[in-house]
């Protein structure tokens, strides 16, 4: 098992190299001149030239690439010229923020979508089924920034139940000592309950916003997959042998329906991680999506490259964990084979 995982990780290296090359080339092909951007509107030609030299942009492309790869190998992901921070530092603080939000949203969505999908599949045509379909349609047709704004407007502005949508933590509280980067977990480790509650409060609205978005594909996939499995021959065998309806539904049907649901989950997860920029904007969430967009607008190469590379690494890990999880659910999918 361990060796297989290792092999898989090694197998991902060519992909990662590809990502490094492509992002490097893509950022260079982007319109916009970072030197001009940083020199500002009033920058003279000499100033721009000087900045260009400082950034190493006066060198030829292959030279730039070699420098970039050499730095990467040393663990130097470059500097963000917009924030003046090393890219790696930015990523390690912002990635956990995005991850915490995404995972919370996924968890919430799973808790709601899976029972909903199962109920809808076992009672086709019932109100649960219609609810499931309604949610699926709503989730697809409501853009996240709109639900986000709407929730913030209702629960913060009108009702005052939620805290101001201003990031991960109330400004009066200080972040817990960094262990995982997840405030909820780190505050518990530090036994700092006010911070835990504060972080939780900040998390609720953006989590609901994202979860609403994820609910649709998950519930729909659970329903479809369950419907397919429930009409399978082996379910009839299980019923014919008199197994309890609960056993038939969970041990037999649901476990078999799980694979497509897991695939959807993985897809949604990777999609959310990089693309919840709008939600991050609405809730001033210091996540990785907004960071990448800002860097992109500023033609700030290093953060963009760092962002893409860290995403690629995450996808590799994500796919690997999904494959391992497949093996647990379905013996035919054991990654040994």
């Amino acid at each position: 098992m361990l060796t297989t995982i290792l092999k898989r990780l090694l197998g991902a290296i060519p992909n990662l190299i590809g990502v490094v090359v492509v992002t490097f080339l893509l950022t260079r092909a982007l319109p916009g001149d970072p030197a001009a951007f940083f020199a500002g509107g009033a920058g003279t030609a000499e100033a721009v030239e000087e900045i260009r030299k400082k950034l190493g942009l006066d060198k030829s492309l292959p030279e730039q690439f070699i420098v970039y790869v050499r730095d990467l190998a040393r663990g130097d992901w470059g500097m963000s010229h917009a924030t003046g921070q090393p890219v790696l530092t930015e990523l390690t603080t912002r990635l956990p923020a995005s991850l915490e939000l995404t995972l919370a949203a996924l968890l919430l969505a799973v808790i709601i979508a899976i029972p909903l999908g199962i109920l809808a599949a076992t009672r086709p045509g019932s109100w649960v089924d219609h609810l499931c379909r309604g949610i699926a349609t709503a989730g697809v047709s409501l853009p996240t920034f709109f639900t986000g704004l709407l929730l913030a407007y209702i629960f913060y502005f009108l009702l005052g139940w939620a805290p101001a949508p201003l990031g991960r933590l109330d400004p009066y509280l200080s972040a817990p000592p960094l262990v995982t980067g997840f405030y909820l977990i780190d505050s518990l480790i530090a036994r700092d309950f006010p911070v835990f509650v504060g972080a939780l409060k900040q998390l609720i609205l953006p989590t609901i916003t994202l979860a609403l978005f994820v609910l649709a594909p998950l519930a729909r996939m659970t329903r479809a997959s369950m419907l397919g499995v429930l009409s399978a021959d082996f379910i009839r065998t299980a019923r014919a042998s008199g197994l309890a309806p609960r056993t038939v539904l969970f041990s037999y049907a649901f476990r078999n329906a799980l694979l497509p649901v897991m695939t959807t989950l993985g897809m949604v997860f990777s999609f959310l991680l990089g693309s919840n920029v709008l939600v991050e904007k609405v809730f001033a969430w210091p996540g990785i999506g907004s960071f990448a967009i800002e860097a992109l607008v500023a033609s700030d190469y290093a953060p963009v490259q760092g962002f893409v590379l860290s995403m690629a690494l995450l996808y590799v890990l994500l796919n690997l964990s999904i494959d391992i999880a497949y093996g647990f659910v379905d013996p035919r999918m054991k990654i040994e084979n």
Binding site: A232, D233, F234, R236, T237, A238, R239, A240, S241, G242, L243, T247, S251, Y252, R255, N256, V329, D330, P331, R332
Partner: peptide
Amino acid sequence: RGRELAMIFQNPRVALNPIRQVGRQIEDV
């Protein structure tokens, strides 16, 4: 059902739960 009356089906390959050990399936009953 399954105790006094039992049934076997055609296409045994698809009539068994594909992801459960066959012994476990007997044990379930």
